[in-house]
Design a binder for these strands. Structure first.
Lengths: 343, 343
DNA sequence: TTATATTGTGCAATCCATTGCATAATATTG
DNA sequence: CAATATTATGCAATGGATTGCACAATATAA
């Protein structure tokens, strides 16, 4: 197990001091071109590279950032991670990925761990169960860039990158209206969460813009899963609620709705059009492909990473970004009334 | 921005030296109980914690391990990551996640980066395009545990954790036979890859065990995607090949097959039963749920992590593990001939 | 009580790179 | 050529924790 070369090895080989080598490697203008060249060649020859930990110890900066997501094995979040890495890796940053498991306690622990690691910044999507924010303030107190993505909390001097959920809700609803629908049911998840609140807002705005009266009887509450979707559909059928379409704020709900409706011989989209939200991978794999709203997590990740870079490069200046990315409507068969369906 | 406390802060507060503090914190038997207690209390009071980078610099060990996957946003791999983290996080290890993007060059770069980081070990699922192994040897030369998971390469002193693909191929085929099938088509992906080679082997073994002649006309080659699956199905239909079932070595292929067969009014599973491989999340979301083989990536991750722990704790002793985890058959509607289907 | 053993602490070097200050080497100017 | 300005390098401390060796403090035995 050969030892890794250090600047001292280069120095002694060239009969100069480590200080000179260090300056040469950092392209200091104090060092003559001749010496720089010697050092660089020698470094390459020994396949020398700087010891990250020595650097971190000396400078307090690690070139590592902390990335916290509720779960890594979700299509949405893993694609965000992809985006972040894509943007930060070329700049020499390493991304330390952590999961909060939607637990506030774990989230606090993880932030603690990140601070111990002396990361240069934190990108985080807040756990659903988080109610306090002292752990976020700690990050700010340490003078580190803090960027929320997808789910944010109000913290001074932090930035955020989100989907424009209201816009998403609006275009989904507008799409249904464009298909001739007017009795549009809406299925929401926990309205305490901003993302759902905003989707709902978009739904109402679209109705309003088209002079369709909002009818609270058409609004249903569910969890974000297939079973809940089925339940809602059953409720609609058994109460004989008259609708021509359903906009679900989750693809899983939409799938449950479709399954239940089909089981009851309702024609989709003929009788009822269905639209989901998030554009989960399965939406295009179904027999009846599902119209949905694409949030482009990859771009969210890239954007959050860019905000981070902005903040570190700004040094003292406090920059607060609040970015909203427009989601995109992906039209598929579940919503296309009276028209040729793509195969 | 307050400075982080060090052992020197504790030392001066207690009028002792940093050496004593260090020993006390490490519970050295050289230190009196009284002093230990003082130090521990003081450390807690200042909310002191060790500086990872100072430790790494001194010891050469970082308590970080490198985890390399082709893509992080795949259900299979992200669940492996979950397993690894679950096992290693409580032991004080941090997991640095990297992607190779199925590129040999990127994989080499990533391994290089890991070595620069002085990780304490590497867990890797080899990129499909990797043909050389000098980067793996470098890991071994650095005396670091190297554990392959899912996809391995033959490297001395390394360990591996894999799915028992042959077993998976066997139980899938046996299941079809148990349903009364005997004309079982097989769709494989690149036979140069071990995982597919072994699944194929399992298929043949099962046939043999049931005295069914292997018929190479029933073996098809495809890429692991829906389109390829459709193509295979079309080929079977247009050539009027007589089969009663198809075992696809990928769920995506199976899905394509199902779609094409349905489009041609073939009854599944009545006329033809279909089985996939990998138990992708979508398999249970389909109208016709897909029977598949669950590889339990979470367990693969945990197992790989445990092997790593074994290796680091073994110090000098060279331990080579070669673990094969049994996959599990998940029976769903696509394969259940003549029987009650689960709803 | 003195000599010896035992136990608890301190000193200082080490891991590797950076950087303020001092100084040597060279170039410029009078 | 002497004197000053430039330029290039070296010295040594720093960041935080560890550890071999020396030594002080205490306990035990004679």
């Amino acid at each position: 197990m050969k030892k890794k070369p250090t600047i001292y090895d280069i120095a002694s080989k060239l009969n100069i001091t480590a200080a000179t080598v260090s300056r040469a490697l950092n392209d200091s203008e104090l060092i003559s071109k001749k010496t720089k060249k010697m050092v660089l060649e020698s470094a390459h020859e020994l396949s020398y590279f700087k010891n990250r930990h020595a650097l971190a110890l000396k400078s307090g900066r690690t070139n590592q950032i902390g990335l916290v997501v509720p779960f890594i094995n979700r299509h949405f979040f893993s694609n965000i991670i992809m985006g972040v890495e894509e943007e930060l890796y070329p700049k020499g940053y390493q991304v330390m990925i952590f999961q909060s498991n939607e637990s506030e306690k774990k989230e606090q622990d993880v932030v603690e761990a990140l601070l111990k690691n002396q990361v240069d910044g934190v990108l985080i999507s807040v756990s659903k169960t988080t109610r306090t924010k002292s752990h976020f303030n700690k990050i700010i107190e340490n003078n580190l860039p803090l960027i929320f993505f997808d789910r944010k909390v109000d913290v001074d001097n932090s930035s955020s990158v989100e989907t424009d959920d209201e816009f998403g809700g609006k275009i989904a609803t507008q799409h249904l209206i464009d298909q001739g629908c007017s009795q549009i049911a809406y299925v929401t998840v926990d309205l305490n969460l901003n993302i759902y609140k905003n989707r709902f807002k978009g739904y109402k705005k679209a109705l309003e813009a088209n002079n369709i009266d909002f009818n609270s009887d058409l609004v249903f509450q569910a969890n974000s899963d297939v079973i809940s979707g089925r339940k809602v559909a059953r409720q609609i059928l058994s109460n004989d609620i008259k609708i021509d379409s359903i906009f679900c704020s989750s693809d899983y709900i939409a799938l449950g709705v479709i399954q239940e409706l089909k089981d009851n011989n309702v024609d989709i989209p003929g009788d009822i059009s269905v639209v989901g939200f998030s554009n989960e991978p399965f939406t295009e794999l179904l027999d009846l492909t599902l119209t949905s709203i694409e949030q482009n997590p990859y771009e969210i990740g890239k954007s959050a990473a860019r905000v981070f870079l902005d903040q570190v490069n700004a040094k003292d200046a406090i920059i607060e970004h609040a970015i909203k990315l427009k989601p995109k409507l992906c039209i598929r068969n579940s919503s296309m009334k009276n028209s040729l369906k793509p195969h």
